[in-house]
């Protein structure tokens, strides 16, 4: 099994909005590291200290709804989160995450995963593997275009490369 990474699952419920990911009082900064220190500040105060680089955020339906603030996915990048797996995403969060190069997978059933479980994700093949329960959850694979965008590190590096090749 080739996987993109293995880490701990931080599991959240349905309808987690951008205010719960990055409360609006922290929006004065746009520095990923600083934002990362306040990720899920009110909802799960232990998150920022406990999260290890390579861990994953796992959520139910409609993750990232609410305002269009790009600070929310940026805070997860700053916290070292290696990817977000959810049963569904709100539109602008999904788009912003892809643009920032944060891997996201739409994956039915992952709301069942227990908090703290060791999981692996494979973005290319499109699945999540729960090592404790030995269950594989198949994801909707990212379309090749978005996969390419994520592989290149997001929209900014992608654009830089595009501009260079046009020269």
């Amino acid at each position: 099994m080739s996987v993109d990474g293995t880490g701990r699952a931080w599991v959240f419920g349905d309808d987690i909005d951008t205010d719960q990911i990055t409360p609006s009082r922290f929006l004065v900064s746009s520095d990923p590291d600083e934002l990362g220190e306040h990720a899920f500040n009110d909802l799960r105060p232990e998150f920022a200290d406990g999260v290890e680089p390579g861990d994953f955020v796992v959520a139910g339906e409609n993750f990232g709804s609410g305002s269009s603030r790009e600070h929310a996915p940026l805070s997860l990048v700053g916290a070292g989160v290696a990817g977000v797996v959810a049963q569904s995403f709100a539109r602008i969060f999904f788009r912003n995450a892809i643009n920032l190069g944060l891997p996201v997978l739409i994956c039915p059933g992952v709301g069942e995963i227990d908090d703290g479980t060791e999981i692996s994700i494979d973005v290319d093949e499109g699945f999540v593997y729960d090592h404790d329960e030995e269950i594989r959850y198949d994801a909707e694979p990212l379309p090749p275009f978005l996969q390419d965008l994520v592989d290149q590190g997001g929209l900014k590096p992608y654009t830089r490369r595009k501009l260079e090749s046009a020269d």
Binding site: E70, N99, L155, L163
Partner: peptide
């Protein structure tokens, strides 16, 4: 978002 628009300023395109 601002990443979308800022890059589109440069390329004239967006996904």
């Amino acid at each position: 978002g601002s990443t979308d628009l800022g890059t589109a300023f440069a390329t004239g395109e967006l996904w």
